[in-house]
């Protein structure tokens, strides 16, 4: 960490590094997978699960995007991008071989070290599964270092479910429970229908020895934290990932302030206990 910090301090944190698109593919009707590698063929960038990059498209703009790839594969950076605006549209319209500017990785990560030897409960909603996928890789890559892995995932509708094949593959690992639900089901959907909190009935939890990691819309996370507390998880074992407007990612631009916190450098992952009083504040 100290060495990493020194390197970053020496370089201009606002300069994007040139990366090249190696793969781009559709995950769902509006969400895309994007794989980048350093243009100069260098060894790439190490990251901690939960961190994000600033991705820049030439002449269009820059966006904070969570890294959704495998942390043990440092040669490339994998992102899951939902196309909802001009910049995200530009990002997912890149073709193989196109250049993309990358800054980062930035921010705090999920507590994967602290979670060793314990059960990991992951609760994700919508695109919120993307920043949590590296945690799943981390746990499954080091399976014996962790207890049970319980993934509760809620999506809007069956066609919005991310990483479908992987969800099925993860569920086959030992000591791993994967539950997926959608808010609106169709007849062909054989999974659960209902919001993500309704999955708790089926989750096999050992609250006393678990760490929970949450990512999704803020309302969803508020409901989920209540559910986790009802199930006996202590607040200091719950972690959430937050989102705010972000321009610089290094604490200079002021946009991502959330009460006393800067989402970019104090987050995006926060211990729930630390931000609990803020979550219920309107227009903070």
């Amino acid at each position: 960490m100290a060495a990493l910090a020194t390197i970053l301090e020496k370089t201009d944190p606002m300069l994007p590094q040139p990366y090249v698109v190696r793969q781009v593919g559709k995950e769902t009707p509006d969400t895309f997978g994007l794989t980048l590698e350093p243009e100069d063929g260098a060894s790439g960038t190490a990251f901690r699960p939960g961190q994000f990059s600033m991705l820049w498209v030439f002449g269009v703009g820059e966006l904070p995007i969570s890294i959704s790839g495998d942390p043990s594969d440092s040669g490339r950076l994998v992102y899951t991008v939902r196309s909802v605006g001009k910049a995200t549209n530009a990002l997912v319209s890149r073709e193989v071989g196109d250049g993309i500017g990358v800054r980062g990785p930035y921010g705090t990560g999920w507590p994967v070290e602290e979670a060793r030897g314990r059960d990991v409960i992951i609760v994700a909603g919508g695109i919120g599964l993307a920043p949590l996928r590296p945690v799943i890789y981390e746990v499954l890559n080091n399976r014996k270092d962790y207890g049970r892995l319980v993934l509760l995932y809620g999506a809007r509708s069956p066609r919005d479910v991310l990483y479908r094949k992987e969800l099925a593959a993860w569920a086959r690992h030992r000591e791993t429970q994967v539950l997926t639900t959608v808010d609106y089901g169709g007849l062909s959907w054989k999974g659960h229908v209902g919001v993500v909190t309704t999955l708790f009935k089926y989750a096999r939890l050992q609250p006393a020895r678990s760490v929970a990691m949450l990512c999704g819309p803020e309302i969803m996370m508020r409901f989920v934290t209540r559910e986790l507390e009802v199930h006996g998880l202590s607040r200091d074992n719950i972690y959430v990932s937050m989102e705010r407007n972000m321009k610089c990612a290094v604490g200079f631009c002021g946009h991502c302030q959330y009460g006393p916190h800067f989402i970019c450098k104090d987050g995006p992952v926060f211990p729930y206990e630390r931000i609990r009083p803020l979550l219920e504040k309107y227009e903070l």
Partner: peptide, 16 residues
């Protein structure tokens, strides 16, 4: 101290 960033490019699109 708050700032924003603005990306601009010229008409050729080759300079940003």
């Amino acid at each position: 101290f708050c700032t924003t960033v603005e990306d601009i490019s010229d008409v050729t699109g080759d300079h940003a």
